[in-house]
Design a protein around this nucleic acid. Structure first.
Lengths: 144, 144
DNA sequence: TATCAAAACGCGACCAGCACGCAACAGCGT
DNA sequence: ACGCTGTTGCGTGCTGGTCGCGTTTTGATA
């Protein structure tokens, strides 16, 4: 499931893009780093190995990688966007109270997607924005 | 269903807030204006009647109105947030291709909300971010 | 109706997150 | 190794929104 950096680099070449140090490091950070990094966090990770990489380079690389379908970005809340590999695309549930982020089970959106398709002809791709709510812990805490 | 400005003003007083010209005009713009206005659009509407109202006043009023539960804001895409009366809260479906905004039928999220509650204990409140996808027109157009 | 503390306002400075134009640089096909 | 062209570093600019400050306004009370 999880791609290697080399496989992703191959995707870059196939797409007609060049493979640069900065680009390879962004991919490495996405593969090896924590989940849901922001552009800023990726920049920090990249700079541990190549301190002179500029912020705008990371933004442009993420844009290009997204155009090639290698990565996708998601908004989990009001702050910066978060990035992950397209192979790991999934929905997100975010708690409005504590900010906890859950990855939505693959099939959670199915019934809604079916309903939207049947009733409105609308094809759901519910990955770009998180769905907010209240997590189990905060819900029980709120009752007390 | 749709509240009058006077009712909303009463909500303000009940909440301990004062009623000012700018505040009344923001509410008027929300009641009478088009759906899904941005703060900027509300500012323009307010200024047709009170040209000296400052942008930060509109932002602060929207913040206060949201704190009191009179309005809510939603993100329909990458741009500015959109505001509407809390009594009119609803989910949104936004087409990634043409940008069209549909209001989601009340019950569309029900199955997903039930599933999230039962399986994860997570209480969905899926109104803050739109759910993206491809609308019927763009889906059929894409096949050609 | 006059008084007055607290709330709200106008104004400008500032901030995060990101996009862009440009000249220098570097990947990679030959 | 050469040269075309994509990419980078750097600075600057933009959008959407927040904040601090000094002044004005609201509305409870006298």
């Amino acid at each position: 499931m999880s791609s290697t950096v080399d496989e992703l680099v191959a995707q870059l070449r196939d797409g007609g893009s060049r493979v640069t140090t900065a680009r390879r490091l962004v991919l490495t950070a996405l593969v090896k780093g924590p989940d849901h990094p922001t552009a800023e966090e990726l920049l920090v990770a990249v700079r541990t190995l190549a301190p002179d990489v500029h912020a705008s380079t990371v933004y442009r690389n993420l844009e290009e990688l997204e155009r090639l379908g290698v990565v996708v970005h998601t908004h989990l809340g009001h702050g910066a966007a978060t990035y992950h590999l397209a192979t790991e695309a999934h929905g997100h549930l975010v708690c409005e109270v504590c900010g906890a982020t859950l990855e939505a089970p693959e099939d959670l959106f199915e019934a809604m997607a079916d309903g939207a398709k049947r009733r409105l002809g609308f094809e759901l791709r519910p990955y770009h924005f998180a769905v907010l709510g209240v997590c189990a812990e905060c819900a029980t805490a709120a009752e007390a």
